[in-house]
Simulated scan of single mutants.
Amino acid sequence: MANIQIAIVDDHEIVRDGIKILLEDEPGINITGEAKTGKEAVSLCNSHETDLVIMDITMPEMDGIEATKIIKENHPDIKILALTMLSEDQHIRKMIKAGASGYILKSSGKQELIKAINTIMAGKHYFSNDATQSILQELVTPDVNKVKDEDEAHITDRELEVLKLIVNEYTNQEIADELFVSVRTIDAHRRNLLQKTGAKNTAGLVKYALKNKLFNNNG
């Protein structure tokens, strides 16, 4: 079996050096390159033969989530293993959605790192115990606690206008008339709001607006 060609991506040189030391004598593994930003990681994968990228998340220029997304779009066969200090469920979910096949913490030891690499290269997924617990906690948390904060939801100004009218009990037709657009457009805005906020229905949207104190001056 050919060696696994691995790229290491982390903005801290001491971390990259530590990973190289852990892996350089491991049979079947070859370090082909390293990068200190997500942008460099994308370029590295375009120019070097790479089977797997060990990817940090928080980096300058472009974070690991965006880099993973671009790499997977351009090179679907390249596997991504997130290696990070971040154990919060939102980071795990975002990395999985971007295309990562594994997620382990920097507190992991050499054996877990090698196990994660081999598991991913066998076509499976690998998550450290801490990451698994975080995902399980997210699954069992009541829906009311899953509603996102305003900053995380990235609601546009137009969607905010629509949400304000929803809170004021306008129908879709009334909102469309108020904003001089079609009902179909309002339907699309409502779907986007549900997706972005994590709400399941109109009541959830109202609860979201109240939780984030979006329209305090409007009753």
Rank of each mutant, 00 (worst) to 15 (best):
M1T: 10
M1V: 02
A2Q: 09
I8F: 09
V9E: 13
D10S: 07
H12D: 14
I14V: 05
D17F: 09
G18E: 06
I19V: 11
K20V: 01
L23T: 09
L23Q: 10
E26Y: 02
P27F: 15
T32A: 13
T32F: 04
E34W: 09
K36G: 05
G38K: 00
G38T: 01
L44P: 03
C45E: 06
E49V: 02
D51M: 05
L52Q: 08
L52K: 06
D56L: 10
D56F: 05
T58I: 01
M59Y: 08
E61K: 13
E66L: 04
E66K: 14
I71A: 09
K72W: 08
P76F: 03
D77T: 01
A82D: 04
E88W: 01
Q90E: 00
Q90Y: 10
K94R: 12
G99S: 04
S101C: 03
K106R: 11
K110C: 01
Q111L: 12
N118Q: 13
N118E: 11
M121D: 02
A122G: 09
G123E: 11
K124S: 13
K124F: 06
Y126S: 09
Y126K: 10
Y126E: 13
D130P: 00
S134C: 08
E138T: 05
D143K: 10
D143T: 06
V144M: 03
K146T: 03
V147Y: 09
K148C: 13
K148M: 05
E152F: 11
A153F: 02
A153T: 04
A153P: 03
H154K: 15
I155S: 10
I155Q: 08
R158P: 15
E159Y: 08
I166E: 04
T171D: 08
A176N: 08
D177L: 13
D177V: 04
E178T: 05
L179D: 00
F180H: 14
F180A: 14
F180D: 15
H189F: 14
H189K: 10
H189D: 15
K196V: 02
G198D: 10
A199F: 07
A199D: 00
N201C: 08
N201F: 07
Y208G: 13
A209P: 07
K213P: 10
K213C: 15
F215C: 12
